[in-house]
């Protein structure tokens, strides 16, 4: 491959990667807090609150993300009554689908973390007079975050690679760009270079998590 065409290819892939990174970041920003809310709902003592959240998690984890992306994009345009039918922007639809899906996975990770905190922590906080929300935000959540970093990093790494699924809506993310280039020049090289891109992005993700874990290593 000639030098100039390689530069052109990398440029092209960078554009696709940028789209992938945008989907990745928006999904995280929405699904991390949403997952916590879902976890709290899933842990409610009231069955009529807990039930719908359990169902939500079942559906989100139990059906293909690819299908969910298609559903979120197309459902509003055929399920809503005529007149208020709306066409979602593809990019927005992709982010909604990703956020809803990842929130379900994050919720279960949060739940595992919250349930692993000893009861004694709640009791100590209660007798000291902390309110329930103070206990959660000041005492429980910081300890939960430290414990769930490894499983969260797993999901985040998966998310980097899952962004490739949005090509089903015709969004030009990294993988689709690479695939198109491959068919155009009859070579698998662009796809393999895209692979290196994913690897690099996940190398950064791994570093960030590693650094955060070290930051939180001041206590056990």
């Amino acid at each position: 491959m000639e030098w100039t065409s390689l530069v052109r290819l990398v440029n092209l892939l960078c554009g696709g990667a940028l789209t992938s990174i945008q989907i990745f970041l928006y999904t995280l920003i929405i699904s991390l807090p949403l997952g916590l809310a879902v976890a709290l709902g899933r842990m409610s003592k009231k069955p009529w609150v807990r039930g719908p959240f359990k169902f939500y998690i079942l559906v989100m984890r139990g059906t293909p993300l690819l299908l969910q992306i298609i559903f979120v994009y197309f459902a509003p345009s055929f399920m809503l009554p005529e007149g208020i039918r709306l066409n979602l922007d593809r990019f927005v639809a992709a982010i909604i689908a990703f956020s809803l899906n990842y929130a379900a996975y994050f919720a279960e990770i949060y739940r595992g973390g919250i349930e692993s905190i000893p009861q004694g922590q709640y009791e100590a906080a209660a007798v000291l007079g902390f309110t329930k929300s103070q206990t959660f935000t000041r005492i429980i959540l910081p300890q939960v975050i430290k414990r769930i970093l490894p499983p969260i990093s797993n999901e985040v790494i998966t998310l980097v690679k899952d962004t490739a699924l949005v090509q089903v809506l015709g969004i030009s993310e990294l993988f689709r760009v690479a695939k198109n280039e491959s068919s155009r020049i009859f070579s698998t090289t662009p796809i393999f270079i895209a692979g290196l891109f994913y690897l690099m992005m996940n190398w950064v993700v791994t570093k960030v998590f590693h650094y955060t874990e070290i930051k939180l290593n001041y206590y056990k």
């Binding site: 000893p118 004694g120 922590q121 009791e123 100590a124 007798v127 005492i139 910081p142 300890q143 430290k146 206590y219 056990k220």
Partner: peptide, 14 residues
């Protein structure tokens, strides 16, 4: 008005 000391201390580790 009430304080409590537990068998397992229950200090906040963080």
């Amino acid at each position: 008005k009430l304080g409590m000391v537990f068998q397992n201390f229950n200090l906040f580790p963080h």
